[in-house]
Computed example of a mutant assay.
Amino acid sequence: MMKRSLIWQAALIFMAMAAGLSTRKMAAALPDAVNMYAGDALWALMIFFGFGFLLRKADTKTVGLIALICCYIIECSQLYHAAWIDHIRATALGGLVLGYGFLWSDLLAYLLGIGAGILFEGIIYKRKL
């Protein structure tokens, strides 16, 4: 049974968050493909690490599936545009968490980000064994 370190998981969450936010700050210097997908993939990676933090004893595939479902639900929620949720999205934090508009390409970016997290955990925990 795997048990994730809370300190490492928290550090991974903040590293993914910092990397994702930095892609927005450096958008002018990055290629278009990176600008289009890196932020969303890193957001999904952060969600993966967040669920790893919450579900420390869960296996990697379970954490990945839960994170992917969460990301997909949030992306699909962008199809809903009531005034109350659009007011939340209009704030900086609300926009970062909930996004603004549904994009099919984001679903692929989430899959890639969570896939990277699964690969990362597989490599790290294989070394520990």
Rank of each mutant, 00 (worst) to 15 (best):
A19R: 03
I123L: 09
M26A: 02
W104N: 09
R24H: 05
K61L: 11
E75H: 04
M2E: 11
L119Q: 07
V34E: 10
G52M: 07
F53N: 07
G64L: 11
S5H: 10
M15N: 09
G113Q: 11
G20C: 03
A10S: 11
Q78H: 11
A109D: 03
L79W: 15
M2R: 13
L129P: 00
K25L: 06
V97H: 10
L54T: 04
G64Y: 14
A116E: 09
S22Q: 03
G64A: 14
T91Q: 11
L54D: 02
A11P: 01
K128W: 02
G113N: 12
G39W: 06
D32M: 07
G117C: 07
D32Y: 05
L108N: 08
I69K: 10
G52K: 01
A28M: 06
I13N: 05
V63S: 03
L30E: 05
L108T: 08
L65F: 12
A116T: 03
A28C: 01
V97Q: 06
M36R: 07
T23E: 04
L65S: 08
Q9E: 14
L112T: 02
I73P: 03
H81K: 15
D86V: 14
D86K: 11
Q78T: 13
G64T: 12
G50Q: 10
A33R: 05
K128Q: 01
T91A: 10
A83C: 13
A83L: 15
A29Y: 08
N35H: 04
I118F: 10
I123S: 02
L45C: 04
G117P: 00
G122S: 02
I123C: 04
Y80W: 15
G50E: 13
L96G: 01
I73L: 12
L65D: 08
D106E: 07
G101H: 15
F48L: 04
A19N: 01
L129N: 01
L54P: 00
L79N: 13
K25Q: 08
W84S: 15
H81E: 15
T62C: 14
M26E: 09
